[in-house]
Amino acid sequence: MTVEEKRQLELKTMRQIIGIYCHDKHHTQKGKLCENCEQVWQYAQHRIAVCPHMEHKTFCSVCKTHCYEPTYRDKIREIMRYGGPRMLFVSPIQVIRHMYLEWKDRKRSDTFHEN
């Protein structure tokens, strides 16, 4: 998977998770975001677009670099904790793909550090 494909998958996943959170918590229509969640989404898009670690990245929560400002970091953490597990019911194939890529990248990273 190319870096750009990985970036697009990250964007798609983030948008879905924010959508789940916003729909359930703010009672918006599916596919729509409230003003606050739209701001979080816009910020997340920017951060993902400029992520310097996308090639080897697994999850933002385990990254050494904290790209998100503290206020957005707390909000993203809240959204991910709520929407992440619910993705299994919305898009199970995407969750499995995400887990596979994370496992594959971790295995590659472990192999790299052993040498």
Rank of each mutant, 00 (worst) to 15 (best):
S91G: 07
T111R: 14
E35C: 10
T28D: 02
K30H: 13
R81D: 12
H53A: 08
S61W: 15
T111K: 14
M99I: 11
V50I: 13
H46F: 12
I76G: 05
M1D: 10
Q39N: 13
L88M: 10
R7N: 04
P70N: 05
E69H: 13
K12F: 11
A44P: 04
R47I: 13
D24G: 10
E78A: 08
R108V: 12
M1W: 10
Q94M: 11
V3F: 06
I20C: 07
C60N: 03
T111G: 14
C37I: 00
H27F: 13
E102L: 15
E55V: 00
P85D: 03
V50E: 12
Y21P: 03
M99F: 04
R81K: 13
L33Q: 09
R47C: 14
Q94G: 02
I18R: 05
D74Y: 02
R81F: 10
E55A: 06
K107N: 09
H66E: 11
N36Q: 13
K30D: 14
H56D: 09
H27E: 14
G84V: 04
L88D: 11
W41P: 08
E78H: 07
K57F: 05
V95K: 05
T65S: 01
D74K: 11
T71V: 12
L88C: 09
H23E: 01
